[in-house]
């Protein structure tokens, strides 16, 4: 045991910042707004208001993940074909280093009534549209923000792919599409899963974008947690929603698997 003494700060971190917070969230979910022990929060959660919010959150998270995947996979695939691919990959990652808030803020200008996108729509004859504070802008900006996190694991999976397998499929007479469907895609599934995990979970709980871009039109579970903790001060209800978010998260982790982090077998 003495050998592990150097890692005491790390054990403390696990106890205080990993285990304790989970217990505290669960504990608080059993208290109503007056601080009495009750199950009222769970009752409230199963009313139509919160159930609809949950369904909505999942629907938006699903949309965001699906759109990201549809755009990211071809991008990652084409990136592996370029010369200087590491440089291009770096350029994909670079925007993630720009503060999230600034990117959201940029879209306030771009999507504004007189913004660049509307000017473009006007020029091609479609005319000015209300872009900001719509579901479209919410999904678009979310995809914009998350897409590098989808491209990166898929790119890595494609890079690891053994090229002779593709050649073998070709030699055996598979068409390009068959090669992709039967060889390339299944072999990069781990990357796809990792990407989906990296996009789906954060998009379930976005709250800053719903306020800035969607103008409170979209209320996700994340927005509700923030609302209860920081505005209405109903910590019990906020904790209850957080409990369900954690359950959802664990479920997603179980489905997509976390081999990515794992120790090598």
């Amino acid at each position: 045991m003495r050998r592990y003494a150097y890692a005491v700060p790390y054990w403390l971190w696990i106890a205080l910042f990993v285990i304790a917070p989970i217990i505290l969230i669960v504990y608080y979910s059993f208290f109503d707004i007056e601080g009495r022990f009750s199950l009222v929060n769970y009752e409230t959660f199963f009313t139509p208001v919160y159930l609809r919010m949950t369904v909505n959150s999942f629907w938006y998270a699903f949309l965001i993940t699906a759109c990201s995947l549809l755009i990211a996979y071809p991008t990652a695939y084409l990136l592996t074909k370029t010369k200087h691919k590491q440089l291009w990959l770096l350029l994909i990652i670079l925007p993630t280093w720009v503060n999230l808030l600034l990117k959201a803020y940029a879209f306030l200008g771009l999507f504004g009534t007189y913004g660049a996108v509307n000017a473009l729509l006007e020029a091609i004859g479609i005319g000015t549209k209300q872009l900001l504070f719509t579901d479209f802008s919410f999904v678009f900006v979310s995809v914009y923000i998350f897409i590098p996190f989808m491209i990166l694991p898929i790119f890595n999976a494609l890079e690891k792919l053994n090229h002779s397998l593709i050649d073998a499929a070709r030699d055996l007479g598979a068409s390009e599409w068959t090669t992709f469907r039967r060889v390339i895609f299944p072999l990069t599934l781990d990357g796809v899963k990792a990407g989906c995990q990296a996009v789906f979970i954060p998009s379930l709980s976005l709250f800053m974008l719903t306020r800035l871009i969607a103008g409170n039109r979209v209320i996700t579970l994340g927005t509700a947690v923030e609302q209860h903790f920081l505005v209405t001060q109903n910590w019990g209800m906020g904790a209850t929603i957080a409990v369900f978010l954690m359950i959802a998260m664990a479920g997603i982790m179980a489905i997509t698997g976390n081999k990515k982090w794992g120790v090598r077998q």
Partner: peptide, 27 residues
């Protein structure tokens, strides 16, 4: 133990920010 430790380690990485924020606020 390795797998357990890794799982505990990764909880904060995969947790949504709001949950981390809210639970730390309580803490």
């Amino acid at each position: 133990w390795k797998q357990t430790l890794l799982t505990l380690n990764n909880i904060l990485i995969v947790s949504p920010d709001v949950i981390i924020g809210a639970s730390f606020l309580i803490l």
